[in-house]
Design a protein around this nucleic acid. Structure first.
Length: 642
DNA sequence: TAGCCTCGAGTTCA
DNA sequence: CTCGAGGCTA
């Protein structure tokens, strides 16, 4: 059994704090009353922050709650009397003023990446081998790692400017998140001002906001009393609390936070992850006391296994552990892939599972005609959520796992989100279970179903297959495509079944009268929809190309096509050779694009949209980037032959 | 040709 | 989030 050395993160804290006696007024004291108040206010703030830390971080209060409250009230009174003494980092200012209209967005100076996953010890060792391979080290070498429990909460970024908490934002998509500063300020264990030595002029730290199980149960009990729907799990509850527009509501939800990674900093230099933890803990930031430094992957695996055993007895939920290369020099050398660093891995615990029954298997037809089997399940609860459907991905999987209608199965929520059937409990079969064979014809339109060579998917070849058309219209209007707000699957379904739209081009011929035929449609809603459609006529070219739904052309490829060709006409005229010469476009994708634009029906649909006034705008080159103010020479990579 | 890496597509629930 | 497939590179 390997012993894990744990690092000491907290500097020794004196068990008592010299509590000053109430200020003695002396006849010789000639300072103004406001100055005297200021001294006392400073003193109170120091004491309150100190006791906050003892209570929330070290779990070792040295004064009673009543004593704390009386100090707090004294500060409040003084601040009321002398409002000029109020500072943003005062303990009384944790709960801000009025509710916000909406959150403003914050762009992270350093993108918040996600982590690669490892599901078991073998994959953890694979990670270790990759690290050493990338560093050019021999497989026997021992790397210093930092191991942390992986809190099941929400990632946030905190920015301390000159020691003062100025901005806190959610991770969002990793690049841009939401400004939740007011809500983060309500977290009592988080200092509004850093304390201690050598505070950097800028410190960005990433941390995980979470709710303890205690707090979660208390909130749900309260919700139930009020007849409100309760939260499914602590993470949802934490997310819901953090996204409150009214910080006064957040203040009643005792959120917690543990910090784990640096962003950009100025005036501070950390050599290792361990240094970083020690430094920020010294400045008063909460760090999970279970964090460990280890030598070599074996100890990291042991940490993972021990955490798994401790999992149920921890006061908060964790969904795994995180292993990081300790040295920041090595981290930099390893670098990162597009979405995750190469120097860290998230080791996931096996997801929670549940047993249920496959009541039916339904073939569902998607936008591209691919027919996927979906299992209808007897509703069952997993980690607080009731699951009644699960995708079976493809027909090979049904065969491989031998899933039959009526089977008892184990299911889990992959990544705690998407339900999946893990295996059939074959020993519980009664004999009445029915096999389900892939359909020979499309269940929706009766067309021929084809299984393309070397592909797993079954595809309906019907051109007029209703769900395909419906889904392609929904896709066209969706947020990342033409972003027609309000035109979701419900309305598209109605438009389609009323025979008002047969293709995406028909969207631009809809009138107010058409909409008024819908159930529960008022003037207001109708004009909103019409103006949303009108506005969409001027979307960027990349969005328009993506919206067309050309096979193999997703968001990304659509953007690079827009960049490369600059206009819809140029793209329509593009020859195969021109297409394959573009980076990341190979023969398959190029052929698919050619075929799409050669199709008469597609040409007709595009012509009608242009006639209706759709003018995909050419993207403007980003301003303010690296090349601003420099002269760029564009090389023509091909010429056109109209 | 294998082994990355990235992209596309389908998916669940509140 | 996860799978499969397309594209690039050693």
């Amino acid at each position: 059994m390997i012993e894990i050395r744990s690092i000491i993160l907290y500097p020794a804290v004196k068990s008592t704090y010299p509590v000053r006696k109430p200020m003695q007024l002396s006849l010789l004291d000639i300072s103004a009353p406001e100055d005297r108040a200021k001294t006392r206010v400073d003193e109170l703030r120091r004491q309150l922050e100190h006791h906050n830390r003892l209570y929330y971080q070290l779990d070792a209060p040295t004064i009673s709650d009543a004593e704390y409250d009386s100090l707090f009230r004294e500060l409040q009174l003084l601040e009321e009397q002398y409002p000029s003494l109020i500072t943003p980092d005062s303990p009384t200012q944790r709960v801000g003023g009025a509710a916000l209209e909406k959150f403003s967005s914050v762009t992270h100076r350093l993108a918040m990446l996600s982590l690669e996953n490892a599901a078991n010890a073998v994959e953890i060792r694979d990670f270790d081998l990759r690290v050493k391979k990338n560093l050019g080290l021999s497989p026997e070498e021992l790397i210093s790692y930092i191991c942390e429990p992986k809190m099941d909460g929400l990632a946030v970024e905190l920015i301390y400017t000159d020691g003062l908490l100025t901005v806190a934002s959610t991770r969002g998509d990793g690049v841009t998140g939401e400004d939740v500063t007011e809500n983060i300020r309500t977290i009592r264990s988080l200092p509004l001002r850093l304390s201690g030595e050598r505070i950097p002029s800028l410190l960005e730290v990433r941390g995980e906001v979470f709710l303890s199980l205690d707090a979660f149960q208390r909130i749900n009990a309260e919700k139930e009393e009020n007849g409100e729907a309760s939260f499914a799990n602590p993470r949802n509850a934490a997310a819901g609390s953090l996204r409150q527009l009214d910080p006064r509501i957040t203040a009643r939800r005792p959120l917690s936070i543990y910090c784990y990674a640096p962003g950009i900093s100025e005036g501070a230099d950390f050599a290792t992850q361990q240094d970083f933890f020690t430094a920020i803990a010294g400045w008063g930031l909460p760090v999970n006391p279970l964090v460990c430094a280890v030598e070599g992957i074996d100890e990291a695996v042991t940490f993972y296994e021990e955490m798994q055993q401790q999992r149920e007895s921890l006061p908060y939920e964790i969904d795994g552990t995180v292993i990081k290369v300790d040295s920041f020099t090595l981290q930099r050398e390893l670098g990162e892939k597009s979405r995750s660093p190469r120097w860290a891995v998230a080791c996931k615990f096996p997801p929670r599972q549940a047993e249920t029954v496959v009541e039916d298997i339904l073939p569902s037809v998607g936008r591209t005609g691919v027919i996927t089997p979906v299992a209808r399940l007897r509703p069952v609860e997993i980690s607080g959520v009731t699951v009644s459907r699960a995708t079976l991905h493809n027909w090979d999987e049904i065969a491989a796992k031998d899933i039959r209608i009526g089977d008892r199965v184990m299911i889990e929520r992959a990544g705690d989100v998407i339900p999946a059937v893990v295996r059939v409990l074959v020993e519980q079969r009664s004999g009445s279970e029915r096999q389900f064979l892939p359909p020979g014809t499309c269940p929706e339109c009766g067309s021929v179903v084809v299984r393309i060579a070397d592909e797993v998917a079954l595809r309906c070849m019907g051109l007029a297959c209703p769900p395909q058309i419906r889904e392609s219209i929904v896709h066209f209007a969706s947020r990342n495509a033409m972003d027609i707000e309000g035109l979701g699957d419900k309305f598209v379904e109605q438009l389609f079944s009323l025979g008002l739209v047969h293709s995406i081009a028909d969207i631009y011929r809809l009138t107010r009268d058409d909409f008024m035929r819908f159930e529960r449609m008022g003037d207001k809603l109708a004009s909103n929809l019409l103006s949303a459609i009108e506005n969409s006529k001027q979307r960027e070219l990349g969005r328009f190309i993506f919206a067309l739904g050309i096979r193999h052309v997703g968001e990304r490829t659509a953007k690079s096509l827009a960049q490369a060709f600059g206009s819809l006409e140029n793209l329509e005229r593009a020859r195969f050779e021109e297409l394959v010469s573009i980076r990341d476009i190979g023969a398959t994708v190029a052929q698919s694009i050619c075929t799409f634009f050669e199709n008469r029906d597609n040409q007709e649909v595009i012509r009608r949209m242009l006639e209706a006034g759709v003018t995909p705008a050419v993207e403007l080159k980003k301003v303010g980037g690296r090349f601003t103010g420099k002269t760029c020479v564009h090389r023509r990579s091909w010429t056109f032959h109209p």
